[in-house]
């Protein structure tokens, strides 16, 4: 027994090679190690082709390892009998809001996952009601999905996963097709879920979103290039630039201000943090003068 609680998801030496019908096999992941703990929020960033989505699909057994292993809540994803239990524990939200809603009515769609679990109808009904309440869409339960906004569609998809009572939610660029209002809507929803103890894996191109995570993991060429708290990772400008990634504008702005002589503490990630720090620095400056 280790002194720390075992990770919810344990990825060890994970490699994945796509075997296309014709041509050379394409290695997408090469020996990735990753732990996802209960209630933790991890942002997975990296350029196109870095293996982010491939890694995501390993977390709920949509893909199986070429080498290495993925253990979810003690279940090995390679175990054929465990696949359904793994998919119940780790839910996935995909990029295109339109391509993941199955039913012609919101509440029917939310029920889809539970129906697959074979739960009794009354149990499904109460879980669906609860999930719709959690994402704040009770009022739209009878709507057809195509009349909803992008942000609302993603929240329906989240409700559908929540109704299955997962331990971890994987969002594979779930906000990239949305307008800013929709992005905020979805992020607020999932961050609230994190506060309730759900583990989150955010795969994102948005550095602002990554800044909200507990831990940022940078993938490059199928391996983990960097891993640490957002402020640690964003401080590694050299590595980020080599991978054609950029720290969020707030981090860059804070760095610029610091370079220009404004006394700011390190590790500022969000606009409110920076604003407070600048105000404090200004007050200190005036008080000192």
């Amino acid at each position: 027994m280790s002194d720390r609680a075992p990770a919810l998801i344990r990825v060890r030496g994970l490699s994945h090679t796509y075997e296309p019908g014709a041509g050379e096999p394409v290695p997408a992941l090469r020996g990735v190690d990753l732990d996802v703990h209960r209630g933790e929020c991890i942002a997975l960033i990296g350029g196109n082709g870095s293996g982010k989505s491939t890694l995501a699909k390993h977390l709920n057994a949509l893909l199986l390892p070429t080498a290495g292993e993925v253990i979810v809540d003690g279940l090995d994803t390679r175990d054929r009998d465990a696949v359904w239990a793994v998919r119940q524990r780790v839910g996935m939200i995909f990029e295109h809001p339109d391509d993941q809603l199955i039913a012609a009515v919101v509440e029917e769609d939310v029920a889809f996952g539970c129906e697959n679990l074979g739960l009794p109808p009354t149990e499904i009904r109460s879980r669906v009601d609860e999930a719709l309440r959690t994402v704040g869409l009770e009022a739209l339960r009878r709507r057809p999905p195509h009349l909803l906004s992008g942000g609302q569609k993603q929240r329906v998809a989240i409700a559908g996963v929540l109704a299955m009572r997962p331990r971890c939610l994987v969002l594979d660029e779930a906000t990239s097709m949305l307008d800013p209002a929709g992005q905020r809507e979805v992020m607020e929803t999932v961050l609230r879920l994190r506060d309730e103890g759900l583990a989150l894996v955010l795969i994102t191109h948005s550095m602002e979103e990554a800044a909200l995570a507990d831990r940022v993991v940078v993938l490059a060429g199928g391996t983990v290039a960097l891993s640490g708290t957002p402020s640690d990772v964003f401080a590694r400008d050299d590595v980020l630039r080599r991978l054609r990634l950029e720290a969020p504008p707030i981090v860059a702005l804070a760095r610029g201000l610091a370079a220009a002589g404004v006394p700011l503490p390190p590790g500022l990630l969000t606009a409110p943090q920076l604003a407070d720090a600048v105000a404090a620095a200004y007050r200190r400056g005036r008080g000192g003068a």
Partner: peptide, 10 residues
């Protein structure tokens, strides 16, 4: 994409 989403939901 839909087939993948359905599989992901068990």
């Amino acid at each position: 994409a839909l087939a993948l989403a359905m599989e992901a939901r068990g």
